[in-house]
Amino acid sequence: MREFSYRRASGVREALTLVAEHDDARYLGGGTNLVDLMKHGVETPGRLVDVRRLPLGGVRETPDGGLAIGATTTNSDAAAHPEVRRRYPALSQAVLAGASGQLRNMATVGGNLLQRTRCGYFADLSQPCNKRAPGSGCAAITGAHHNHAVLGWTGHCAATHPSDMAVPLAAFEAVVRYETLEGPGEIPLADFYLPVGDRPDLETALPPGALITEIVLPPVAAARRSRYRKVRERASYAFATVSVAVALDVHDGFVRDARIALGGVASRPWRARTAEEVLRDAPATPDRFRGAAEAELATADPLPGNAYKVTLARNLIEAVLTELAERDGR
């Protein structure tokens, strides 16, 4: 573990400056992932700038009827917030499906977006890994990849993004707001995570030194009846093998709006736009749900050891759509 300095910022501008003035500084939120990676020597910052006490916490309503969740809000607080639960139940469910109570009390929603993959090779310094050491190769594609990507991966990296929270955020078209010394900016979540390409080490579109300040959720009527379903290899305290966030608005037996995103299948939360297209204005029937799921997975390209994820993702989309449609039908 490299020696590092620790600074606590008292304001956003100070935090930005403390990071900008150092070659190798990182923001520290809850530290639930970063500190682990530092212990492994995967992350080796020279300075940590603690932003957890900045006045960026809390959930506020936006004028258009959406919500803005401050970057330093803990996962626990975000999940428990009555308006999050009322307007975006899948988001609350997703956050609660992640980690443990202790971790959720520490972790922040800003940090959640920036957590790194749990690929075992990424954390093992003696192994090649293009995400950790660009150009060194990928041991997972020919190695143990039971829990790796089936969509959007390249020959350079097949790691998955581990966040549960980011999956409903993708479905609800959240926007990430940030500050830099040059001023504020924002990125739609759809563009926040970069495609894998040949540089899997470059994960987000955030400018260098930028500090995430809040996540803005636009109003989504369908989201009030949304559901997050996470499948994992034990009942709690495990990352998703596949998860899905679904919002469904059915009117007179026809789909008015459907929002679907998958977790555990790609380097980023996977917005299932193809499936959504198939469903739009279509009859809300099991056949159509199955067809939508199959259409989405048509481009899936599993590795030799994870083909099950394609079946699982397809079944899961169909099952959650059916469940929501049945619930609406009552």
């Binding site: 749990r118 075992g120 090779y121 093992d124 192994q127 041991a139 190695g143 143990a144 990352f239």
Partner: peptide, 14 residues
């Protein structure tokens, strides 16, 4: 890991 023969999940997360 088939290539190196090393355990790839030597912790309680894996």
């Amino acid at each position: 890991d088939p290539a190196t023969g090393r355990q790839v999940n030597p912790d309680f997360a894996g």
